Simulated scan of single mutants.
Amino acid sequence: MSLFGKLEVEVEIKAPAHMFHEVNTTGTPELPNICPQFIQKVDLLEGEWGEEGSIVCCYFLVDGKIVVSKEVLEVVDNVNLSITFKLIGGPLLELYKNVKFIVESKPKSEGGLVRNNFEYEKLRWMF
């Protein structure tokens, strides 16, 4: 028996929604310059930046340690400002069978709203 779940978080941002979406697709190599306290480095392993099917390797800083995550860019929806990443490598796959991150940007009168969805299936169901 598997345990499926979804965690959703919404955050207001000062930047326009389309700019946030652009940074998370074609501007991904700039993320370490934008938020160095969280992202140390991003490498393109396959494909082109911002294209569906491309594979990236992200180096995150978690509790003072570098954690490596390998992800495939599954869906890029430039009309609805949505991106879907599927985790294909990294320590989270020791606990989860499947992990997807869906990032949606919504315009507001000033700035934007970002909805982050974390969809997962645990490897083991425990009490």
Rank of each mutant, 00 (worst) to 15 (best):
M1A: 08
M1E: 09
S2V: 12
S2T: 03
F4V: 02
K6L: 15
K6A: 06
K6T: 11
E8H: 10
V9T: 11
E10Y: 14
V11L: 04
V11N: 06
E12C: 01
I13M: 00
I13F: 02
P16C: 02
P16M: 04
M19P: 00
H21T: 02
H21N: 01
H21C: 05
H21R: 04
E22D: 11
V23R: 05
N24C: 11
N24Y: 13
T25R: 08
T25K: 10
T26P: 01
T26G: 07
T26M: 09
G27I: 11
G27A: 10
G27R: 05
T28L: 15
P29T: 03
E30D: 11
P32N: 10
I34G: 01
I34L: 15
C35A: 08
P36D: 04
Q37M: 14
F38E: 04
I39D: 08
I39A: 00
I39V: 15
Q40T: 10
Q40N: 14
V42C: 07
D43P: 14
L44N: 06
G47L: 05
W49H: 10
G50H: 10
G50F: 14
G50R: 03
E52D: 02
E52M: 12
G53V: 13
I55A: 09
V56A: 13
C58A: 09
C58M: 12
Y59S: 09
Y59K: 03
Y59T: 11
Y59M: 03
L61F: 02
L61V: 01
V62H: 06
D63I: 00
G64K: 06
G64L: 14
K65W: 13
V67Q: 02
V68G: 04
V68R: 11
S69Q: 10
S69K: 07
K70Q: 12
V72H: 08
V72L: 04
V72S: 05
L73R: 05
L73D: 00
V75A: 03
V76W: 10
D77G: 03
D77T: 01
N78A: 13
N78E: 12
N78W: 07
V79R: 09
V79W: 01
N80H: 04
L81E: 00
S82M: 14
S82D: 01
S82H: 03
S82I: 00
T84Y: 02
F85N: 02
K86R: 15
K86L: 05
L87A: 00
L87N: 02
G89I: 03
G89R: 03
G90K: 05
L92K: 10
L93R: 05
L93P: 08
E94Q: 15
E94V: 10
E94N: 15
Y96W: 10
K97M: 05
V99F: 12
V99W: 09
V99T: 07
K100I: 13
I102S: 01
E104C: 11
S105A: 15
K106E: 06
K108W: 13
S109W: 07
E110V: 07
E110H: 10
G111P: 09
G112R: 06
L113K: 12
L113D: 08
V114D: 04
R115L: 10
N116H: 07
F118K: 01
E119F: 05
E119Q: 08
Y120H: 06
K122S: 09
L123D: 00
L123S: 05
M126W: 15
F127Y: 14
